[in-house]
Design a protein around this nucleic acid. Structure first.
Lengths: 190, 190
DNA sequence: TTAGATATTGAACATGTGTTCATTAAAATA
DNA sequence: TATTTTAATGAACACATGTTCAATATCTAA
């Protein structure tokens, strides 16, 4: 199954387009593989040559979105810009911009009948960014595992995003940035 | 559909037992509704009279587990015992005990092909506990939304649990408690 | 205990799933 | 361009899904 073979490229493209079209009409859970294939004019057997579930198709998209998340931080090494210092500038927090930009997709990612896969892809994405950030600024005691600490911080941010999502992203990106900045500053008051 | 009708009770019980038996042999994703019904000796149509998906059946179980989580904190009002004070006693943190106790179920809840529903049930459970805790000890500035703050803290804890789960819960409950306590203490050093 | 209410059943139907296999069509390469 | 390689197709299969409906069994309430 050579991914560069034009036939493969064409097939996948058709399937991608079909899924996108269908997603604009109904939620992922109500879309069937047979339906996608009919619309893409691709044999159903061919679908199974490339994917196991319709979720795999969406996963390919989401992969690209995760790359955008990474690229957002490729410039300086700033995930959330050093979590515990009080020189946090809310504008350097890029995560919420990213979510806002792709909110169409994140509405799917966070919907309750979708498998956890995408959640984990997002989690891992943020986890890696934070771990890098935390390691560089090594703002950590030796009794804390970097893994646990990164998982804690990464998922905490996703917690904000969940809350945001549940109000259908009505708050502004800057509200989210400010909330995170304020929360991170809490500890330092004591 | 009277839930007290003996026929209903009997049917649900059979389905529950069948699901549990099957779950000991294979993951939820590989279990079919038809299979559950065959084993429970319940007509497939009857299944659809009570549930929409097999996931709904599991959800009923998980509901009970969530009640256990709540009961764990029914005594004094201590979720994680006031998140930001340094008099945190790791032993008063009950969440990880709870997870450990039901780890069989949480292995399902956190598996990647399962819908987000259960994740949200856990999230909401912890969220409510923390929100109560935070409100009582009102350890919060007025520029922070209690909702966002609770979501942040609740999901942060689940972040630790995810990390724990991914190593198949090899670490001890007390390790987790200590990690959380240490992380919560970080802010106060500055 | 009986009459009425209703949950369960079995059968059937259209559609989806996941897989196989020989055939065909479209690429790569030489 | 001709040859080889291999992806895509169509047909078929057993099984699952989700729904309907009349017939039956079982429960509740009088």
């Amino acid at each position: 199954m050579n991914a560069n073979d034009l036939r493969v490229v064409k097939t996948k493209q058709s399937l991608h387009n079909a899924l996108l079209t269908l997603l604009s009409k109904k939620p992922l859970e109500n879309i069937t593989i047979a339906e996608i294939c009919r619309m893409a004019k691709v044999n159903r057997g061919t679908f199974y040559l490339h994917y196991e579930q319709k979720e795999g198709l969406f996963e390919e998209y989401f992969q690209e979105i995760m790359e955008d998340l990474n690229n957002s931080y490729e410039e300086p090494y700033r995930a959330v810009t050093t979590l515990n210092k009080n020189q946090i500038d809310p504008n350097t927090i890029r995560i919420f911009h990213h979510i806002e930009r792709f909110k169409m997709f994140y509405r799917i990612v966070f919907s309750k009948n979708v498998p956890l896969t995408y959640y984990y892809m997002l989690f891992d994405g943020i986890f890696v960014l934070l771990k890098r950030d935390i390691t560089i600024h090594n703002e950590i005691q030796d009794d804390i595992s970097i893994e646990y600490y990164s998982a804690y911080q990464a998922n905490a941010i996703i917690g904000l995003i969940i809350q945001w999502y549940r109000q259908d992203f009505v708050d502004s990106v800057s509200t989210l940035n400010k909330q995170l900045a304020a929360i991170l500053r809490i500890g330092e008051k004591y």
